[in-house]
């Protein structure tokens, strides 16, 4: 197994690490038993993600996918953030080892969970289908 330089770059110096005390949406996915938990904090103004932070417990690729995924949605409208796929995250990292693909899935789900939290808190209607993803289990 080998990580790309890009993965190592984001693992060694992850971007957007931390929490947002005044977050408008918070999403948490994964569980301790499986060895990875991702928590995303979004600051949203006029349907645009103005700030994003994450906390992640997990392996190098879990940290790297969190880092790059937060980069990819920062400053983006919610509609764009919701289109972010795990595949796009993997491509942005110049690939992930096959056994680590689930980390990229977690990153996609964490963002969606945070947006859903924002919608729920603000009574915004949405298509529930969009947030249907399988629970993370092994």
């Amino acid at each position: 197994m080998e990580y790309s330089e890009k993965v190592m770059e984001h693992f060694v110096n992850p971007h957007n690490v931390g929490k947002l005390d005044d977050a408008d949406g918070i999403g948490e996915v994964g569980n301790a038993k499986c060895g990875d938990i991702m928590k995303m904090y979004l600051k949203i103004e006029n349907e645009i993600i103005t700030d994003v932070k994450f906390n992640t417990y997990g392996c190098a690729s879990a940290i790297a996918t969190s880092s790059i995924a937060t980069d990819m949605i920062k400053g983006q409208p919610l509609s764009e953030a919701l289109k972010l796929t795990n595949k796009a995250v993997v491509e942005a990292l110049d690939g992930l080892p096959a056994v680590k693909i689930h980390c990229s899935v977690l990153a996609e789900q964490a963002i969606k969970a945070a947006v859903k939290d924002y919608y729920d808190k603000n009574g915004i209607e949405y298509d529930a289908e969009m947030f249907k993803f399988e629970e993370h289990h092994h």
Partner: peptide
């Protein structure tokens, strides 16, 4: 903390070790 992250950060400091975490065992 998760073992693989720990072991890779140790590697950056020049220390070679191993871990029995899922991520290093090649299974889940």
């Amino acid at each position: 903390v998760e073992g693989e992250s720990l072991l890779l950060y140790l590697d950056l400091m020049g220390i070679s070790a191993s871990s029995g975490s899922a991520c290093t065992s090649g299974s889940l």
